[in-house]
């Protein structure tokens, strides 16, 4: 009986909306799985990491779950948007460059044409997660009756306990901190500003420290060993503010690193002591999962090096700007 179950091909269901999808998941429970791109699931099935479920609930036919839209206060990304769709989206490039860079280095173009941001998030170890943490993203979940916004950080902390839930990730919401829309006074609250390739002129109120880095065991199309993301504002006098640091990679659950954030917050980017303090804080705070190829210690050193280099590059860039401004 068990063998018969294993050899049978899953039935595929095509709900028309999120309510239908949720109801199917509730009905089939552990015998079912939501699916869109399916690239990660397919590799899990092949490797034996997971058994194919009896029922696949396809999210492809549900309208409104794909695409990137710009609103007055946030960027909204449908959970079924492909990684390629984000990688080449002009609004995402402008307002969430960390995420675009993450999408650029996940897998290869052919995989990114199928894989969705929702699937990358749901894996709980996807390489988009450090970028989304640094961007203070919220996840919008449909729970059968309403849509609930959950900060990504909170969801990651509780994700294990929610694993059997029928809740459906519909959108990722990224706040536009520190970004000024030039026509803001003319814009009705939360009016959609962006659709297709037309983006209204915008500007940043503040300078930014912003970097995403991924290290793997080869240059391209590689599973990550370490991924890091850092974002913060640089004030007029060159101090760091609202700094967010995140790291993950491999099987390490991505998380924010509070100690490095405390080290950076309020400090002058040009402070000569800053880099050493940051390196030590990342090394101490980051607690990665090691494996036979890359141990815990190696990953800690790598994360410390990547984040310190990111801040050093930003400081160097700012110094160059100041020099060119004087002359």
């Amino acid at each position: 009986m068990k063998q018969e179950y294993r050899s049978s091909s899953p039935a595929v269901w095509y709900p028309h909306d999120t309510s239908e999808a949720w109801r199917l998941k509730e009905a089939f429970a552990a015998d079912s799985q939501y699916i869109a791109g399916g690239t990660l699931l397919r590799t899990w099935w092949e490797s034996g990491t997971a058994e194919p479920p009896r029922h696949l609930i396809s999210l492809n036919s549900i309208p409104g779950l794909s695409g990137v839209t710009l609103h007055e206060h946030y960027l909204m990304i449908g959970s079924q948007t492909t990684l390629a769709g984000i990688r080449y989206n002009t609004a995402a490039a402008r307002y969430a460059p960390l995420l675009v860079e993450a999408c650029r280095v996940i897998a290869a173009p052919s995989v990114r044409n199928l894989a969705t941001i929702g699937g990358n998030i749901s894996s709980m170890v996807g390489d988009s997660l450090p970028a989304l943490l640094a961007l203070h993203a919220d996840l919008l979940w449909f729970n059968g009756s309403q849509t609930e916004a959950v900060p990504l950080e909170a969801w990651l902390a509780e994700a294990e306990t929610r694993s059997g839930s029928a809740a459906l990730l519909t959108h990722i919401r990224i706040p536009l901190h520190g970004i000024r829309l030039k026509t803001a006074e003319e814009v009705v609250h939360e009016k959609r500003l962006y659709e297709g390739d037309d983006v209204l002129p915008v500007g940043y109120e503040v300078k930014r420290l912003s970097a995403y880095d991924k290290v793997g065991r080869r240059e391209a199309f590689t599973p990550s060993v370490v991924t890091t993301a850092i974002m913060g504002d640089i004030t007029e006098e060159g101090r760091l503010a609202n700094v967010c640091v995140a790291a993950g990679g491999g099987q390490t659950p991505p998380s924010r690193l509070r100690a490095p954030e405390s080290v950076l917050e309020g400090r002058l980017l040009s402070d000569a002591e800053l880099l050493h303090a940051l390196y030590e804080a990342v090394y101490t705070d980051f607690d990665p999962v090691g494996d036979a190829f890359a141990g815990r210690e190696y990953r800690r050193l790598t994360a410390a090096g990547l984040l310190t280099a990111a801040v050093w590059k930003s400081a160097k860039g700012m110094a160059r700007e100041e020099d060119s401004g004087c002359c």
Binding site: V12, T43, E46, N60, A107, P109, S110, V111, N113, L114
Partner: peptide, 27 residues
Amino acid sequence: CEIGRCGACMVLLDGRPVNACLTMLYQ
């Protein structure tokens, strides 16, 4: 490879390259 790593099974789906080993018929 059959896990989307090697690209030997590449096809175009609506003009975009995808791995045929990762793509399911219903998609």
